[in-house]
Design a protein around this nucleic acid. Sequence first.
DNA 1: ATGAAAGCGCTAACAG
DNA 2: CTGTTAGCGCTTTCAT
Lengths: 348, 348
Amino acid sequence: MASGDFNHSRPQRKRRKMQRVTMTDVANTADVSPSTVSLYLRKPSAVSERIAIRVRRAIDDLGYVPNYVAGGLAAAGSRVVSVIVPSLRNAFFSETVSELERLLARGGLQTLVGHSEYSLDQEEALVRAALSWAPAAVVLTGCRHNDATRKLLIRSQTPVVEMWELGGDPIDQAVGFSHEQVGRHIAQRFIDQGYESAAFLGARLDEDFRAAQRSQGFLAEMEAAGVPARLIENNAPASTSNGVRLFEELCMAPVRAVACSNDMIALGVLFEAQRRGLSIPTQLALAGFGDLDFAAQMVPPLTTVRPSADKIARKVAECILSRDVSGDDESRPVEHDTGFTLVPRASG
Amino acid sequence: MASGDFNHSRPQRKRRKMQRVTMTDVANTADVSPSTVSLYLRKPSAVSERIAIRVRRAIDDLGYVPNYVAGGLAAAGSRVVSVIVPSLRNAFFSETVSELERLLARGGLQTLVGHSEYSLDQEEALVRAALSWAPAAVVLTGCRHNDATRKLLIRSQTPVVEMWELGGDPIDQAVGFSHEQVGRHIAQRFIDQGYESAAFLGARLDEDFRAAQRSQGFLAEMEAAGVPARLIENNAPASTSNGVRLFEELCMAPVRAVACSNDMIALGVLFEAQRRGLSIPTQLALAGFGDLDFAAQMVPPLTTVRPSADKIARKVAECILSRDVSGDDESRPVEHDTGFTLVPRASG
DNA sequence: ATGAAAGCGCTAACAG
DNA sequence: CTGTTAGCGCTTTCAT
């Protein structure tokens, strides 16, 4: 990525010189010095009650809103955390971002989101932009990044958390689980049930490395057990309609059990199976990944894997927040395994 | 909200005084003045090719990453847009945020997200935090806000876009459609089909004002047509499992047609109906809202309403981006109706 | 416990 | 086209 890429200020909106209320205004009104106001804001207990009252009044009267931008500059580090996910349309990530935002907000941190559309170059661009905010931390999805991204991040000294995947060598901290193991567990379930043939339905496997790993684990385990298993894939998003499409393709040469990239795909399979009069699990066994809300409601309920998105979010937040108070370093890199749960249900 | 709320800098991570590469460093290396570097970054065409080359080299050699925080301070206005939605778990909003983020990024704007959990007070807190970033714009969901929020926003002179709903009096710009009309259209469809009784299944109606308006429109239209219609509601999220729950409650006194808060709820109804052996649409007609991906795949396909989340996102981005270049003011407030489409399918 | 002073890294007139 | 000069609003020693 060339250097000319960051033009951080195109012709800007003519913000009229509105006299924003500043800390100095507050100080004047309260008849104290600006630094005292600053101190009060950051550590109210450090100023006398008499002054605290005056400052508080001034703030309310004036409707003062602090300027984090200025604060960030002075303090050499803003209170934003940049979170970069492949896609917000994906329920896993929107769930994680949602929980993360909530948790970080408690710690006084603002969440900056970006989505890479599963592109490593796009990710690099986002990281570049993120670093321009001198963020308190950068959260990335997965442990596969291009070289420039890694270099940028390491060089910046910014705390980094990679989430939703384990196994690469972490830049700093990693929180997630092994997707290959997920695939293996599903395969094992199918093997235990005695199904004699199987397939994995995958979407965007060349971009979604985690889904690819699940498929690989699945196929490997099947092969080890001597159960014939195929991979059907395409490059469309992991949606229900794509599930229908993938399953249609699979039906040209049917199998006894099918594992899906995720629950959305599985939902598509369920519908298409209904349309074709295929009974689940009698004629076709079905498994998904994600344990999204509807999985348990399906008819029949879906066998799936619960990755606990919020557990990941909690752990990530913890990494960031704790790092934030203690200046501990050199303890990295670390991997935190949040595990996953196979949820056996009637579908397969 | 009291004044003590914003402590924008808790004991901060001890960032060692790492010598971040600054613009001055680049200037020195390239043997030009800092302002020339700044100019090059913002308007490459304004510097001579000779110097451009030197600067570019220096940037690459040094691995310079611009500091937006400093830039924002100097330019009196950062290039972030704060987007506040009720929930990111909701597919409508994650879709909108996703698209918005993409579009704004093109314009060099970073997206700051916050979710209010459908609470007006929470929203106020988020707006307060957002304004601390001197954002280029604030995007809110819906047109219902508390007084403090409105005051804060108006006072700040920040461009505001309220999305996903029309009908209130906009603070600045509004992009969306009438949810009441959505309800009426669905009702009309049911009336046209000759169903003699109906119900609306609603989740969180006292917090989700938009869903509440859909229910009101629906009920009003039904009443006008003399078709008996009931409202079944609870305070759980608008999920598939809640759809099941609401429908179970409805089944104590069945009706001929049921309209749902959204498609997730409708999916729950479909499953529960299947379990009870109720045939759709023969015995029960069903309609949703959202036209989520799976709606068209359901068995039978779901009659629903398509709000076009990305159309909203596009229009919002347009409002922000265009405002950004031309300093036009005083043209507000404006409402942009993005409309919606009733998508009739086999379910009802 | 409070204040004075010195920047943080960059942009934006303005001069040359 | 390039450089000089002031800040932007806040935090942070360091005195008092």
